[in-house]
Simulated assay, not measured.
Amino acid sequence: MGELEARKLKHPTTGTEAILMGILVEGTSLAAKFLWANGVTLFKVRDESVKIVGKGDFFFFSPEHPPLTEDAQRVIDWAVDHKLKSGNSGEVTASDLLLGIWSETDSPGHKILAALGFSDEKAKELESLSSEPGSVDD
């Protein structure tokens, strides 16, 4: 979903801001619901993304699969490591990715989240919610 959001904005790469938009577009995960409940919406993230990263050239056609930026790759690596260290079985979740974006402090995704009121306290709250027994995070 992040790739699609990057393409919509005519970006040549998939960055942390696109992953964040992908989480919101998906909409059913614990992370997406947590963001929406805390006032972080897709439209606000898109607006902030254009302010921080810019909008692509009208005549530019983004690749079908825009490659990941270095920040985005580090987010994915962080999410995988976080999942492995947690001892929870299963796949990397949207919550893992969101926490990874928050951990990448110089990334556009982190800056967007901070501008929209996301904080270390919110990250801890999400981590607590996602680690509760019986918590379902697709």
Rank of each mutant, 00 (worst) to 15 (best):
G27Q: 09
E125H: 10
L30I: 12
S135Y: 00
D120N: 13
F43P: 00
G54V: 08
I52E: 11
S119A: 06
H11I: 00
K10A: 09
F118N: 03
D47E: 15
D138H: 03
I112Y: 03
E127H: 11
L68M: 11
S62F: 03
K10I: 11
T41P: 10
R74M: 05
L84F: 09
L68Q: 05
R7I: 07
M21E: 14
N88Y: 14
D77N: 13
L42H: 12
S119Y: 04
L9W: 03
A18F: 01
D47V: 06
T41Y: 12
T69H: 00
S49L: 14
E127R: 11
T41L: 14
A32N: 01
D120E: 15
L98G: 02
V45A: 12
A32F: 05
V40C: 11
N38I: 05
I23S: 04
K111G: 06
E127I: 00
S49C: 14
L4T: 12
A6P: 00
S95P: 01
K111E: 09
M21L: 15
T14I: 04
I101R: 10
S107Y: 08
S130H: 02
K85P: 00
V50P: 02
H65A: 14
A72L: 02
A18R: 01
R74F: 02
G27R: 12
H11L: 07
G2F: 08
L9S: 05
L116R: 01
G39I: 09
L99G: 11
L84N: 07
A114H: 09
H110S: 10
L9T: 00
S119D: 07
H82S: 13
K111V: 05
K33M: 10
I76V: 15
